[in-house]
Design a protein around this nucleic acid. Structure first.
Length: 585
DNA sequence: GCCGTTTTCGGCCCGACTGTTTTCAGTCG
């Protein structure tokens, strides 16, 4: 079995869960969790590192012991520590940790005293009234457990950013209408613009916190009040989405916003930095002894630990603090940097607007070029184009370009990458286009090696310009395909191809960490709406969010180039195509 | 178990709320 970083992370996380349930030293537990996160976010594949003789301890949070364990796992496919932990405690119990209200201590009690080791057994025990007999549990806790199980609530469930964002907006308006509210803002992963959010965090400044929490729990969409104190409250909205509210005095705004924006790992790093300077950082401010020295603005909080303000999108403890320290933070790309959109559909396949309507809508949105990239024939259900219809569309676009001002249509195709890596249309017609986007729409579950080879072969096609939504994931409904993205990125670099960051809110594919990997390898990313209608051109903003999380700057983004700058980049790949086409007929 | 411009040992971020307790452990963010 070939071990990848994700496998290592999974093993370390399970070890952490099992150690925690066993009541192990919490710092040891955290060491495993930190290591899991670090390995899964690392752009370096541990198997490759070992093969190349690189030092695993260069990965943050990996020391002598864990480096050894990683080597062992890669060599043998298994981890003796995990095996021995599983022998003491069935690994199924870790599922109990996902139930709201259950942590390691209670899970251990449930297992040891009631022999509960699955969600089904937990529900049965709760229904039979056996849980409230345990010390530390009571009838309320038992009732909550049962309600959470029956409501299928799960601490780890995450929602698409766009959906959570819309619900947050409405709630912010509701809160802002209260006169006692001074400022109200979404924080947490929403403010960090993560592609998925687990819950909504809202920060309010007010002199009357009780009035704020009262209005909060009275919101029409609230289905349950989970907790409610004087400055903090949590509710579940209909459908299960949790919202946490925190109310602070205006003087604490910056400190509270920093704290509530997170991420947790970023906060921990920030507080540690404060500690080294003899400061205490919390949600009320930055303190030297009992004296508050900062906290009204985020800038003041960062300045107190010697840093410039860091954009929320970067706050993941992925090197942003080190970069801030040496004034090397990226200047992140913005929506207004985008000059065009390189992936859109029209009525010719499964789009809902005509060529002309799409062109005018793009112009209205400040874009100066738009690539028309309908599907190819293999996607029959989308009425994909064959060579003849594509040739006809090329003619239409030429005609339209002659009439339009302020916007230029580029001729393209979203061509299917077949199971064996060939493309769905002959090169004769592909070579006439301005760009060719290759995409996978079938066989998402090939083994990693075959899936990767399939993509590498497609990238080797003489007409290939760009790889669309590489992982194929649909947030909440389809898992990403198993692909060695490092090899894909290296091939793209070698071929002069580009990677798409698909901006549809359910795709957001590339992920943030892969964006950063592309940047590190000098592969330009194109932020594409994949619009199937005029309105979906606005998806670009979600793509920009994701790009910012991936540290992308204007220079890293293909479609932040003007048309004049873009054409030679596309033509450069074109020249190599022509040369190769003549070499190999 | 990691880590080090004080440290190779002794630290490891900080606080709110709940439910179950008679003063606080557990969970969560």
């Amino acid at each position: 079995m070939l071990i990848h970083n994700a496998d290592i992370a999974e093993i370390f996380n399970e070890i952490a869960d099992l150690l925690e349930i066993q009541g192990e030293n919490p710092f040891r537990v955290r060491a495993y969790r930190n290591a899991a996160r670090s390995v899964s976010e690392s752009s370096k594949n541990v198997r490759t590192m070992i093969a190349e003789g690189a030092d695993l301890k260069t990965i943050p949070a990996i020391g002598d012991d864990l480096a050894l364990k990683i080597r062992e796992i890669v060599a043998t496919g298994s981890c003796p520590l995990l095996a021995s932990l599983r022998a003491q405690l069935p690994s199924a119990v870790v599922a109990l940790l996902r139930v709201p209200g259950l942590g390691p201590k209670r899970v251990r009690q449930l297992y040891e005293q009631l022999h509960v080791q699955s969600l089904e057994q937990l529900e049965q025990a709760a229904a039979e009234g056996r849980i409230h007999t345990l010390r530390g549990f009571g009838p309320l806790t038992e009732a909550h457990i049962l309600a959470n199980l029956r409501g299928r609530l799960d601490k780890s469930h995450r929602y698409q950013f766009a959906q959570a964002s819309q619900r947050a907006e409405a709630l912010l308006v509701w809160l802002a209408a209260l006169p006692d509210v001074e400022r109200v803002e979404a924080a947490g992963s929403l403010r960090r613009l993560r592609d998925t959010v687990g819950d909504i965090d809202i920060l309010v400044t007010s002199r009357e916190p009780a009035a704020v929490t009262q209005r909060f729990v009275a919101y029409d969409d609230v289905s349950a009040v989970l907790a409610r104190g004087p400055t903090r409250a949590s509710v579940a909205l209909r459908g299960g989405l949790q919202v946490d509210l925190r109310v602070v005095e205006p003087e604490c705004y910056g400190a509270a916003l920093t704290y509530f924006t997170g991420s947790k790992a970023h906060n921990v790093a920030l507080r540690r930095l404060g500690q080294e300077l003899g400061l205490k950082v919390n949600e009320y401010g930055v303190f030297r002894g009992k004296t508050c020295i900062a906290g009204e603005t985020e800038e003041s909080v960062y300045a107190s630990v010697g840093l410039p303000w860091i954009a929320p999108e970067l706050r993941e403890d992925r090197g942003e603090i080190e970069a801030a320290r040496v004034a090397a933070l990226p200047t992140l790309v913005t929506r207004s940097d985008l000059r065009g959109d390189l992936h859109t559909h029209t009525l010719a396949s499964d789009g809902r607007a005509s060529l002309c309507e799409m062109a005018l809508a793009a112009r209205e949105r400040g874009l100066s070029y738009l690539a028309v990239t309908d599907h190819s024939k293999r996607l029959a259900m989308t009425h994909g184009l064959d060579a003849t219809r594509l040739a006809a569309q090329i003619g239409e676009i030429d005609q339209l370009n002659a009439q339009l001002t302020g916007i230029t249509l580029l001729k393209g195709i979203e061509v299917d990458i077949l199971e064996d890596g060939r493309l769905d249309l002959p090169n004769a017609v592909l070579a006439r286009l301005d760009l060719v986007i290759g995409a996978i729409h079938s066989h998402f579950d090939l083994p990693r090696e075959r899936q990767t080879e399939r993509i590498l072969r497609a990238l080797d096609h003489p007409s290939m310009t760009m790889l669309a939504h590489p992982s194929g994931r649909l947030i909440g409904s389809r898992e990403p395909s198993d692909i060695d993205m490092l090899r894909v990125i290296r091939k793209a670099r070698e071929r002069g191809c580009f990677l798409e960051l698909n901006a549809q809110p359910e795709r957001l594919d590339l992920t943030d960490t892969v964006c950063r990997m592309a940047k590190d390898h000098g592969v330009l990313v194109s932020i594409n709406s994949d619009a199937h209608s005029v309105a979906q051109l606005d998806n670009l903003r979600y793509g920009v969010n994701q790009a910012r999380r991936g540290w992308l700057e204007k220079a890293d983004v293909l479609n932040a180039r003007s048309l004049a700058q873009l054409r030679p980049l596309l033509a450069r790949t074109m020249r190599s195509r022509v040369r190769e086409a003549s070499e190999s007929p």
